[in-house]
Simulated scan of single mutants.
Amino acid sequence: MKDTLTLFEYDHLCTDDGAEDTIFIDSDAFNALELFLCSQAANENINAEETHAVFRFSSRRGRKTLAAQNYVGVISAGNTEIEILPKIGKKIRYCDSEYERVRRTFLAMLQELRDAPFKNLGCAELTTARMPLFEIFISAFLNEVSKVVRSGLRSDYQDWSGNERFLRGATQLFRAATSQSRQQLSLCCGVQRLSREST
């Protein structure tokens, strides 16, 4: 099982446990991040010391660190998942309720994105705020996959309601009570039918 490390934007990661103003990360994960940054720099033909989109090389009090940049999300390095939250919660650290508040705010920001799969996360807000970001992203992905599997590539389920001689789907009592035709041999039902047309 992977360890989860939570930090905020612009925090510094260091392998020295006693360093001030830094967050401790094990050397394997630090080396994996360092190797990733160097390989990215080689692919883009830039100096590895230059600013990267996610991390940049830095130093604090003579110790080598990696500073998180203007990035929010999840990065996997070795056996550690690094969860980077927005800097809005940076003042009060090491408090679980503060991390939950920042996660809730971050998820609210994601839900406001246009054309993003985060409009409906499908989880209760309290449960979602306690979950690591990686699990939230996986659940959003699985919700989208289930929609595609359910609808298929060329078909989709569409709502249908009408009178049937036998019960199909859900009974629509309000519609039955207000319906003009009160046939004793039919029920007002609502069901989702599979449509073969492309939507």
Rank of each mutant, 00 (worst) to 15 (best):
A129Y: 01
I136Q: 04
P86A: 06
D159K: 14
P132R: 01
E125H: 02
F118S: 06
R101T: 14
E144A: 15
L121A: 02
Y157V: 06
E83V: 08
T128A: 15
L133Q: 12
E135I: 10
R154E: 14
L85Q: 07
V102R: 01
N143L: 13
L126K: 13
A140K: 04
Y157P: 10
Y99W: 07
E112C: 09
Y94T: 09
L110Q: 04
V145C: 15
R154M: 09
L142Y: 07
Q158A: 11
N120P: 00
R103S: 12
K90R: 12
T105D: 06
L133V: 07
D156R: 14
G89H: 02
L142C: 06
A129D: 06
I138L: 11
L113K: 06
K87M: 05
V149A: 12
I82L: 14
G152K: 02
R154I: 08
E98K: 04
E125N: 05
K87A: 11
I88L: 10
D159F: 15
G89S: 04
F106L: 15
A129E: 09
L113Y: 03
P86Y: 04
L153H: 06
E83A: 03
G89R: 01
F137A: 10
N120F: 02
R104Q: 09
V148D: 05
E144Q: 14
E135P: 00
K87H: 05
E125W: 00
T127R: 00
R130T: 14
N120M: 00
I88N: 09
A116G: 11
C123F: 11
A124E: 13
E112Q: 13
E81F: 05
D156K: 14
I88F: 03
K91Y: 05
I84D: 00
P132Q: 01
L121T: 03
R104G: 10
L142A: 04
L107C: 10
K90S: 12
Y157W: 13
V148C: 05
L113Q: 12
L107I: 04
K119C: 05
T127F: 07
D115S: 09
N120K: 10
Y157D: 10
G152L: 04
Q111D: 03
A140M: 04
Y94D: 15
R150W: 01
R93A: 11
S151V: 00
K90Y: 03
S97F: 05
I92E: 13
I84S: 01
E98I: 15
F137E: 02
E144M: 11
K91Q: 08
D115T: 02
